[in-house]
Amino acid sequence: MPDFNDLTLLPFCVGLTLLGLIGSWVAWRRRGLAAGTRGVAWSLLPIALYLTKLLELVWDVVRSAVTWVTHLIFSPPVWAGFALFGVSVVLYVVSGVARGRSPKEPKQPKPKAKPAGELTTTGPAPASAAPAKAAPPKTKGGQQDSSDFDEIEDILKRHGIN
């Protein structure tokens, strides 16, 4: 790709600006003030880019992008890099799936529950965290043992509920 050349770009930018100004004048006459003003704004950009040296920057960016794309398309090592990138992504996804399907580690026995009323640094365990008690034994008549009801009545009386 050719290098940036001030001598050829100055006439090119001036020509683009003049063509744009002529088009803006036509747009002003046919479509009104807003269209003409917008056309003038766009028409002044080429010469403004040239005078601020931003056109050279844009030229370098475009040239670098074109060089990168042509290097990308025609370079076997780059395609090998893309292939390795794809393999890496696939392996990562497969490892996540395999991790979810791997056998779980054997569960270790839970620590023994502390006796009720013992003070700990974390305070008493919430009622939902306490292990569920087995259903109370039933007597021959199908009713629960009266000692369970006695305990419940005792608790209700302590809290003032009768």
Rank of each mutant, 00 (worst) to 15 (best):
D3W: 03
D3Y: 00
N5F: 08
L9D: 06
P11H: 03
P11F: 03
V14R: 10
V14T: 10
V14C: 10
L16N: 01
T17I: 05
T17K: 08
L21R: 02
I22E: 07
S24F: 00
S24K: 00
R29V: 14
R29N: 12
R31H: 05
G32Q: 01
L33D: 09
A34R: 08
R38P: 06
V40E: 01
L44V: 00
L44G: 02
I47H: 06
A48S: 03
L51V: 08
L55H: 05
E56R: 15
D60W: 11
D60K: 11
V62A: 15
S64M: 10
T67R: 12
T67V: 13
T70Q: 10
T70G: 02
T70I: 11
H71K: 14
L72W: 13
L72H: 06
F74V: 03
F74L: 11
F74G: 07
S75I: 07
W79A: 02
A80H: 08
F82T: 01
A83M: 02
L84P: 00
L84K: 10
L84C: 05
F85M: 14
G86V: 02
L91V: 14
L91R: 12
L91C: 08
G96M: 14
V97A: 12
V97D: 03
R99G: 15
R101A: 13
R101L: 15
P103M: 15
K104C: 10
E105R: 09
P106G: 03
Q108M: 11
Q108A: 11
K110G: 01
A116E: 15
G117P: 01
G117K: 06
G117F: 00
L119V: 11
T120I: 05
T121K: 14
T121P: 08
T122D: 15
A125Y: 09
A125V: 15
A125I: 14
A125H: 11
A127C: 07
S128V: 12
A132R: 10
A132S: 09
K133S: 14
A135M: 11
P136R: 06
K138Y: 12
K140I: 08
S146M: 13
S147F: 12
D148Y: 14
D150H: 10
D150S: 13
E151I: 04
I152G: 03
E153T: 08
D154T: 13
H159P: 00
